[in-house]
């Protein structure tokens, strides 16, 4: 556990400059809506969606929890909770591998917002729900498989 923690801290330090540069670009004053990532949200493959949010090389991390039901009877409403324990997490992205449009949501957090979001998503089929957390300019990911039983016949 301690080794992992060390490497995360080291990684955060070395990527600090990138992180600061990113923050400067991301932080916008007031209630201005950020530009919508059209290419990402309209991407129909997982790889394209991942790279559109800068997570193409995201490392798997055990410090991200993705809470979702093992089996969802109704794929139209699947509750998902994501929490990151990586220090300095300032962005969370949610994706679903098998959806027509895999990119679901992209949350930028600031001013004391904790690295936690809970929402409800649509799943087209049994699929991994992938969460990406960003800290110090680096991307980390975790996933949880959700089985979707369309038609409610059980599975």
């Amino acid at each position: 556990m301690n080794n992992l923690r060390r490497s995360v801290l080291k990684g955060a330090g070395s990527a600090g400059v990138v992180g600061v540069a990113m923050m400067a670009g991301l932080l916008k004053p007031g209630m201005v809506f950020a530009a919508w990532n059209k290419a990402g949200f309209e991407s129909k493959d997982m790889a394209g969606a991942m790279s559109s949010v800068g997570a193409g090389a995201a490392a798997a991390s055990g410090d991200i929890t993705v809470k979702a039901p093992d089996i969802a009877e109704n794929g139209a409403v699947v509750p998902v909770e994501v929490e990151s324990k990586i220090a300095g997490t300032n962005r969370l992205v949610l994706l679903s591998e098998k959806n027509i449009y895999p990119l679901l949501a992209d949350f930028n957090l600031s001013n004391g917002a904790e690295p936690y979001v809970s929402t409800r998503i649509k799943l087209g089929a049994t699929s991994n729900v992938v969460a990406v957390a960003y800290a110090g300019g680096k991307a980390y990911k975790a996933h949880k498989e959700v089985k979707v039983t369309i038609g409610g016949c059980g599975g």
Binding site: F33, F41, Y101, L103, A105, A113, E114, I121
Partner: peptide, 28 residues
């Protein structure tokens, strides 16, 4: 976007993959 106490805390982009009548919870 979400603001708490006059400061922006969340700036989110969504696609159509969020369920109808969206629910969102977060902590500040």
């Amino acid at each position: 976007t979400c603001e708490v106490g006059g400061k922006p805390v969340m700036d989110a982009q969504w696609g159509g993959g969020i369920s109808k009548n969206p629910y969102l919870a977060f902590r500040v």
